[in-house]
C-alpha cells in the first residue's frame, strides 16, 4: 500500500524542483508586476498603496500609447509573417541536395548565433547617412554621387528595424521547418510523382500539412519573442522620434526608467502580457483544431 502511494507521488516529486524554480523565477515576478500595476508607486520604486486601475487609465488615455500599440502590432505581424514566409522558402531550398549545402546551413546560423545588440548595431552602422557602410559602398561603386539619407522619416527607421528583425528571425524559422521537412518520408513524394502531381501540388498537399506542426511551434514562439523584443529597437532608435518607433516593451522601459513611472510601466507590461496570451492561445487552439479536423 505504502509502495503504491509512493509510486503515485513519485512523478510529482521528480518534477517538484522544476515547479519550485518556475514559481520563484516566473510566477513570483509576474505576480509582483500585476501588483505593481494596481498600485501607486513612487518614482524611487516604493509601493504606496492600492490604486485600482488608475495606472491603466493613465496609460490608455495617453496619446503615445495608441501609437505604440499600433507600432507593436505592425512590428510583430510584419516580422513574424515575413520571416515565416522567407524562412519557409529558405528551408525548402536548404532541404534540396546541392554542393555546399552544409556550408549554406552553417551560414544560416550566424545571424541567429550573434547577439541582437551586435546585430542591431551593425544594421545601424550600415544605414547611417554620414558614415554608414551602405552609402560608402554605393559611393565607391559609383552608383550614387552623394550620400543618401536612408532614414529620412520615422517610418523609414521603423522599416529598417523591421528588416533587421526579419533578418535575425529567419534562421529560427528555417531550422524549425527544416527539421519538419527532414522528417517527411520521401516515399510520399515518390508516390505523388508517380501519380503525376506537380511541384506545387506536392508542396501544398504533402509538404505543408506535414510541416504544419513545426510551423505552429516556430510561429507561436516567434510571436512571443518578437512582441517582447527589446534590443533591436532600443539599439537603433530608442523608440525615437517621439515614440514613433517605440513598441510596448521599449515604451514601458522608458516609462519605468526614464520617467520614473513604474506603476504605469507595469500596467503596460500587463496589457502586453494579456494581448500576447490571447493571440498565442487563439493561434494555437485554432491550428490544433484544424489539425484535429
Amino acid at each position: 500500500m505504502k509502495n503504491k502511494t509512493f509510486r503515485k507521488a513519485e512523478p510529482y516529486i521528480w518534477i517538484l524542483p522544476s515547479i519550485i524554480l518556475m514559481a520563484i523565477f516566473i510566477l513570483v515576478p509576474i505576480v509582483f508586476v500585476f501588483r505593481m500595476s494596481l498600485s501607486e508607486v513612487s518614482k524611487a520604486g516604493i509601493i504606496r498603496g492600492f490604486s485600482g486601475f488608475a495606472n491603466f487609465t493613465k496609460v490608455m488615455n495617453s496619446s503615445a500609447f495608441k501609437l505604440v500599440l499600433r507600432n507593436t502590432i505592425v512590428w510583430t505581424v510584419a516580422v513574424v509573417v515575413l520571416s515565416t514566409v522567407l524562412g519557409f522558402i529558405l528551408a525548402l531550398m536548404l532541404n534540396n541536395e546541392f554542393r555546399g549545402r552544409k556550408i549554406a546551413r552553417a551560414i544560416m546560423v550566424f545571424p541567429w548565433a550573434t547577439t541582437l545588440v551586435i546585430q542591431a548595431s551593425a544594421w545601424k552602422f550600415i544605414i547611417d547617412t554620414d558614415y554608414g557602410t551602405l552609402n560608402t559602398l554605393l559611393l565607391r561603386l559609383g552608383i550614387i554621387d552623394k550620400a543618401i539619407n536612408w532614414t529620412p522619416t520615422a517610418g523609414a527607421y521603423f522599416t529598417w528595424e523591421i528588416a533587421c528583425g526579419i533578418f535575425v528571425t529567419i534562421p529560427f524559422v528555417t531550422f524549425c521547418v527544416l527539421s519538419g521537412l527532414q522528417s517527411i518520408d520521401t516515399s510520399y513524394y515518390e508516390a505523388a510523382t508517380v501519380d503525376g502531381a506537380s511541384y506545387w501540388q506536392q508542396l501544398f498537399q504533402i509538404t505543408m500539412p506535414l510541416v504544419s506542426s513545426s510551423l505552429t511551434v516556430s510561429t507561436v514562439l516567434n510571436i512571443i519573442y518578437v512582441f517582447n523584443s527589446f534590443p533591436i529597437i532600443w539599439t537603433i532608435t530608442k523608440g525615437d522620434p517621439a515614440n514613433h518607433t517605440d513598441t510596448l516593451v521599449t515604451y514601458l522601459y522608458k516609462l519605468a526608467f526614464y520617467n520614473g513611472k513604474q506603476g504605469q510601466a507595469a500596467a503596460v507590461s500587463v496589457i502586453g502580457f494579456t494581448i500576447l496570451l490571447i493571440c498565442a492561445s487563439v493561434y494555437m487552439v485554432y491550428t490544433l483544431r484544424k489539425g484535429d479536423d
Partner: peptide
Amino acid sequence: ALFLTVSMVCGLAACSSNSGGGSSD
C-alpha cells in the same frame, strides 16, 4: 495546448521583463 501557451507566455514574459519585480512597502 492552452496550458502550454500560457506557460510559454508566462515564461518568456518573465524572462524578458525589465520592469523589475521586487517591491516593498
